[in-house]
Amino acid sequence: MKKQKKMSVEKLYRLFIYVALLTLAITIIIPVAWVFIASIKEKSEFYTSPWDMPKGFYFQNFIDAFEKANMGTYMLNSIMVTALAILILLVVALPAAYVLARYTFKGSKILNTLFKAGLFINVNYIVVPIFLMLLDADMVIRGRFGDGFLLDNLFVLALVYASTALPFTIYLLSSYFQTLPSTYEEAAWVDGAGYFKTMYKIMIPMARPSIVAVILFNFLSFWNEYIIALTLIPGPNKTLPVGLMNLMAAQKSATNYGQMYAGMVLVMLPTLILYILVQKKLTQGMALGGSKE
């Protein structure tokens, strides 16, 4: 009797688990899939029930988004900025994170606090001071050389991306370095390797899982970022999310939802594909950042 009751409770519990999991999965899959479906709908279909399936495959939406809204150029810009920013970030953050994690020296505490404090600085409200700063610098340069080049420059944008990602990246990398046993370094020193060589040959390769995580996280955040790009690139060299914002703004005066959803698909697709390819690494990587402080 008692056992039977326990059994049915157990069954109910299993049922609850699956219902809960499925509910969450559905609330995620359906809206995302819906955008994909809406992107191939014709204009008139947007005035019927949103749950109706599309009548055909209206690819013109994508052609319009690509041609009229310049999404091709924007995509190339986004790829360049993202790759460059990640490269700068790794070159700068890896040595710093390693040193902060493994060495105590005069000022190491202050440095650690400084980078931790950086975690609290919200990029959204320092964008304008950054812009004004670059502007002032441009004025000085213009006075000397006739033309400023800091604004509207994809390289500077990448540099700003890398800088604003430093606190989190260093935090994540140094947490990982802390977990590595010191025996490797000691062995390297015994072999006569210098500090640089030890770091570069032994320790950084060991941190590979966390480096992969850093690349993935920052790829997503740089790729999706729009406030900094909007402010620092006033010219036509826009990045993809800013391009999408423009596309959305353009739709306000043309009543063409199909194009808007096509634009959304263009922004989503690369991240989705990348995610499907590397999802294991990405979610594994999160173990590094969150759990071990």
Binding site: V91, I121, S163, Y195
Partner: peptide, 27 residues
């Protein structure tokens, strides 16, 4: 060791100062 620590931390510190700390002070 000092040189090593200096070389490793300075670029990060510079970028952090230039693009995060200074703008924050400006705010």
């Amino acid at each position: 060791k000092r040189i090593f620590i200096f070389v490793c931390t300075t670029p990060a510190l510079l970028l952090l100062t230039l693009f995060m700390i200074v703008p924050t002070i400006e705010v």
